[in-house]
Design a binder for these strands. Structure first.
Lengths: 339, 339
DNA sequence: ATGAAAGCGCTAACAT
DNA sequence: ATGTTAGCGCTTTCAT
């Protein structure tokens, strides 16, 4: 229960062990030539006193901080979180600590944070977001490498890691075709979102490859359940023959699902339903549970962190855009029709 | 586009400005007596060179790091995030940076992170979680103050900030009574969750105060939509007279809502519905939009951070449990019945 | 095998 | 008004 007032320094450890500071340092770091007995004694004293080497002093000397900054432009939202976990996975093991900051979508605040991170001598910066649209670079001449994850920089010299929305859309189309569907509609988010456009595009291309077309044009709207309900209504009216609906998000799929039930269409018997995001509570809460696309956000975080580590380690700074493949999570809403 | 290889030191600034290191330091920090011209020149050179004082060197000297550690036991989940944002609000302004770590619910990992944070000389630690159940302390004799937010330590000497679930339950009951409901059922999460028990208790007490009893015993189950569907079925069978249902979470409320519709009960005309969490996408996606309790997670984070700052600033370390009041977010699902 | 001393980047006293 | 110096806690030569 003894509450230490100040942190223990190596000087105190050395004194208590009756050795010089230098010797204590060597003992604790397994360096140099020391008697086994000395090492043990110093170690014991350090343990006893609760000594922890001061990372700042070490950093000052080594010129390294073993820290990186994470700048979130998502209010640490639904998309940033898994990315953060992936980042932590990749960095934590390597003794690298992460400074977190959230910009609240405010450029001033963002610049302020970047300054602060640089003053703290982070060795690299990861910028996360929730949209794949290019956003202004946080700086092209920063003294440390920067990687964008789940967001993209406008600058070609920056490096971004984003999900493969195109591939995700194609994945769904192929799955639906393979399970016997052929009249496939699409209800998705606002057209101004690149993600919405590319998911739709991925689906159309895959259908085209099979010599098919979608049931009507993609219906662009909002990323909400309410739009899902409306969109499904529109789709069913215009194309009552649909036997599958691919939705641009799980939320939209929930709305679509509700309208389908209201209209007496059974899922998946009459109409197969597929969402996007694999947002667990949404997807598993759906009745029936929702087949959906997983953007591998954790993987995006890991890949981003690994590239950052590489650049920190001296590898040439990467640039351009890297896409990470999506996965399909099969649940009941798209079960193959026995017919 | 010049990519600086190493960070600029004050020594280089001083040299470039033709002054001594000490003078440069004073100029940049507005200390001492210097000619205005000198100050300006140094400032200009520093700006030009992109000088940023090394926070580690400063920290070593001042004995302060202006950092705190945030240990999340929630995989940065739904509950931790808003808390984190609140923490950042309160700390960011004061130039304090936050190291983030997530334990993945692994005690070994947790201990490891705490060690690392202490080695980095954080000035305090905030532990976040997703349950109000007491959890083992991360250490009662740490050299820095610790505050638990949205989780609670078993140790009396620790300080925890948690939501007022009891008050939240009472809030809902009073709201329902005030809007003309009197036969109120309750469907909630597992009984082993203190949050579930206290929300139920808060509701019963408030009802008792009004001389009423709830429609049957609280139905404890799971934190899922599926359980909400089942629970509503059970409740409707046993108490077909219910005119309001209070749910232990928004997810449960979604499930309840579905069953109500399936059974032909209109919300809110026949039955008022109230959730808990104010999980926006869930609550607003509901048809009709869901009245629900907001746990003021951001406020919990802010309060936790403020107490931590106080302790860092020399105030006596707080202890015990502080509850933060919940708020009620009114939406359509509990609109007063015109009858 | 151990100790002494220099120095990482910076600030604050003390000299000039 | 400016320069010089000591020292924060540590590691790493270089002496002993």
């Amino acid at each position: 229960m003894s509450e230490q007032v100040a942190a223990v320094t190596i000087r105190e450890v050395a004194a208590a062990a009756g050795v010089s500071i230098g010797t204590a340092s060597k003992a604790l770091n397994g360096r140099g030539k020391l008697r086994e007995e000395t090492r043990a004694r110093v170690a014991a004293v350090a343990e006893e006193l609760g000594f922890r080497p001061n990372a700042m002093a070490r950093g000052l000397l080594s010129g390294r901080t073993y820290t990186v900054g994470l700048v979130s432009c998502d209010s640490f939202g639904r998309f940033s979180i898994p990315v953060m976990l992936g980042v932590e996975d990749a960095l934590g093991a390597g003794q690298i600590s992460v400074f977190m900051c959230d910009t609240r979508d405010d450029p001033i605040r963002e610049q302020h944070y970047v300054e602060r991170l640089l003053a703290r001598r982070v060795e690299g910066i990861i910028v996360t977001g929730r949209r794949t649209e290019p956003r202004p670079s946080i700086g092209t001449d920063l003294p440390v490498p920067v990687v964008y994850a789940m967001t993209r920089s406008t600058s070609d010299s920056d490096f971004s890691v984003i999900p493969d929305d195109l591939g995700g859309g194609a994945l769904v189309a192929r799955h639906l075709l393979a399970t016997g569907r052929s009249r496939i509609g699409h209800v998705t988010g606002p057209r101004r979102f690149e993600a919405a456009r590319r998911r739709a595009e991925g689906m159309s291309s895959a259908l085209a490859q099979a010599g098919l077309r979608s049931a009507g044009e993609p219906l662009f709207g909002e990323w909400s359940e309410e739009w899902g309900r409306q969109g499904a209504d529109i789709l069913l009216r215009a194309h009552p023959e649909v036997d599958a609906i691919f939705c641009g998000s799980d939320q939209i799929a929930r709305g679509v699902c509700e309208t389908l039930r209201d209209r007496g269409r059974r899922v998946p018997d009459d109409v197969a339903l597929v969402g996007f995001d694999n947002w667990e509570p949404m997807a598993t809460g759906c009745r029936p549970p929702l087949t959906t696309v997983d953007m591998s956000l954790g993987e995006i975080g890991r890949v981003a962190a690994e590239h950052l580590l590489g650049a920190i380690g001296g590898a040439p700074r990467p640039s351009g855009v890297l896409t990470v493949p999506c996965g399909l999570v099969l649940r009941e809403s798209s079960r193959a029709n026995p017919t």
